[in-house]
Simulated scan of single mutants.
Amino acid sequence: MSQILQLTPFVLCSSLDTQIEFYCKKLGFTCNFRQENYAFLRLDQVAIRLLECPPRSDGKPLGDNQSFYIDVDGIDELYEEMKGQLADLPEGRVRPPFDQPYQQREFHVIDEDGTLIFFGQDIRPR
């Protein structure tokens, strides 16, 4: 019997070194594998695959139409843990925790190539 284990999105990037540094130093990921234009990063039960690519022909950032959602428990505590590392990012790259009408509490971070990362927690009454 087969079993689905996890989803690991590919995140396109213009500089593998820059993105590895961002995800590891700002968000707490660990680089578990790396080769010329590819890296596999993990944070607890979450993983991503970075893929270095040439610039887009339209000049837009590689992450312009990319996003992914990381479900968490303890959203406010996680934000507080990351807040110091995120503080030096340019204005508009971090949105502090807030409640969504679809009963998720979220904070958002934009990576070095424009990919939008959602961190969210279910806040429905139990």
Score class of each variant (00 low, 15 high):
residue 62 L to F: 09
residue 93 R to Q: 12
residue 27 L to E: 08
residue 48 I to L: 11
residue 87 A to T: 07
residue 37 N to V: 09
residue 49 R to D: 10
residue 15 S to T: 00
residue 56 R to N: 09
residue 78 L to G: 05
residue 1 M to L: 14
residue 35 Q to L: 04
residue 10 F to K: 10
residue 100 Q to W: 03
residue 12 L to T: 02
residue 68 F to I: 13
residue 2 S to P: 10
residue 55 P to W: 02
residue 31 C to D: 04
residue 94 V to K: 08
residue 45 Q to N: 15
residue 34 R to I: 01
residue 123 I to N: 02
residue 96 P to M: 05
residue 59 G to I: 08
residue 105 R to M: 06
residue 119 F to C: 06
residue 87 A to C: 07
residue 122 D to I: 08
residue 55 P to L: 01
residue 26 K to R: 15
residue 108 H to D: 11
residue 54 P to M: 07
residue 116 L to P: 05
residue 88 D to L: 04
residue 72 V to Y: 11
residue 124 R to H: 13
residue 75 I to G: 04
residue 70 I to H: 10
residue 115 T to L: 05
residue 40 F to E: 15
residue 101 P to T: 09
residue 63 G to D: 08
residue 64 D to I: 12
residue 17 D to T: 10
residue 6 Q to E: 14
residue 112 E to S: 13
residue 58 D to M: 07
residue 60 K to L: 14
residue 24 C to H: 06
residue 69 Y to G: 05
residue 34 R to W: 01
residue 71 D to I: 03
residue 88 D to A: 12
residue 87 A to G: 06
residue 30 T to I: 01
residue 126 R to N: 09
residue 65 N to G: 06
residue 45 Q to V: 10
residue 30 T to V: 08
residue 118 F to M: 12
residue 97 P to L: 05
residue 99 D to W: 04
residue 117 I to W: 01
residue 91 E to S: 15
residue 3 Q to S: 13
residue 54 P to D: 07
residue 78 L to M: 13
residue 50 L to Y: 02
residue 92 G to R: 02
residue 68 F to W: 03
residue 94 V to G: 07
residue 17 D to G: 01
residue 97 P to F: 11
residue 48 I to G: 03
residue 93 R to G: 04
residue 125 P to W: 03
residue 13 C to H: 02
residue 28 G to K: 09
residue 3 Q to M: 15
residue 8 T to K: 12
residue 92 G to A: 04
residue 95 R to C: 13
residue 45 Q to K: 12
residue 46 V to N: 09
residue 66 Q to G: 07
residue 120 G to D: 04
residue 125 P to Y: 04
residue 96 P to V: 01
residue 18 T to N: 11
residue 33 F to N: 07
residue 108 H to T: 11
residue 12 L to E: 05
residue 51 L to H: 12
residue 117 I to A: 04
residue 49 R to S: 12
residue 78 L to I: 13
residue 102 Y to V: 10
residue 17 D to E: 15
residue 10 F to I: 14
residue 90 P to E: 05
residue 40 F to L: 14
residue 119 F to W: 14
residue 54 P to W: 02
residue 48 I to F: 00
residue 15 S to C: 02
residue 115 T to R: 03
residue 54 P to F: 07
residue 75 I to N: 06
residue 31 C to H: 05
residue 102 Y to R: 07
residue 92 G to C: 08
residue 29 F to P: 05
residue 66 Q to H: 11
residue 106 E to P: 06
residue 73 D to M: 09
residue 61 P to Q: 06
residue 16 L to V: 03
residue 60 K to V: 09
residue 107 F to C: 05
residue 20 I to T: 03
residue 43 L to Y: 14
residue 18 T to I: 12
residue 80 E to D: 11
residue 5 L to E: 15
residue 55 P to T: 01
residue 104 Q to T: 11
residue 27 L to A: 00
residue 52 E to Y: 04
residue 50 L to E: 00
residue 16 L to S: 03
residue 58 D to N: 15
residue 30 T to G: 07
residue 86 L to Q: 06
residue 112 E to A: 14
residue 77 E to T: 14
residue 8 T to P: 00
residue 88 D to R: 06
residue 101 P to A: 06
residue 76 D to W: 10
residue 109 V to W: 01
residue 98 F to V: 08
residue 82 M to H: 12
residue 42 R to C: 03
residue 22 F to S: 01
residue 61 P to C: 09
residue 33 F to Q: 08
residue 55 P to H: 07
residue 16 L to T: 05
residue 1 M to E: 13
residue 40 F to I: 08
residue 81 E to D: 14
